[in-house]
């Protein structure tokens, strides 16, 4: 089985063989307007937290969701697609888990 890493800024729309993800470098994480700490929380809780708080940031603002449930890695970008918000990028966190950046589109 494969291990997952961040997609390193790749578009949420491109799906690659999971190994392909491993080879990509993780760029430095840029600033976000709001950080949601969902570390240690199981899905769907991180997504519920995101849905509750996305409107806290201004239009075009970026929410960073910190999560370590493996489901969040797939489910937050999927939520963005379903809800027409933008999955900007996913970054590895130094202590495990990811910072998943979501842009408020409306």
């Amino acid at each position: 089985m494969w291990r997952r890493r961040s997609s390193g800024g790749a578009s949420a729309e491109t799906r690659e063989a999971p190994e392909a993800r491993e080879t990509q470098q993780t760029p430095a994480e840029p600033q976000s307007d709001l950080t949601i700490d969902a570390l240690g929380r199981k899905c769907p809780i991180p997504i519920i937290m995101l849905a509750e708080q996305i409107n806290v940031v201004p239009l075009g603002g970026v929410v960073a969701v910190h999560a370590d449930d493996p489901a969040a890695f797939t489910d937050i970008p999927a939520w963005c697609r379903l809800k027409s918000h933008g999955h900007v990028a996913t970054y590895d966190l130094p202590r495990g888990g990811w910072s998943i950046h979501v842009r408020r589109n409306y």
Partner: peptide, 17 residues
């Protein structure tokens, strides 16, 4: 199993619910 379905994950669709 603490891992989400590898099928749903590879598709990039919601894995919960």
């Amino acid at each position: 199993t603490l891992r989400p379905s590898h099928v749903l994950e590879a598709m990039g669709v919601l894995t919960h619910g």
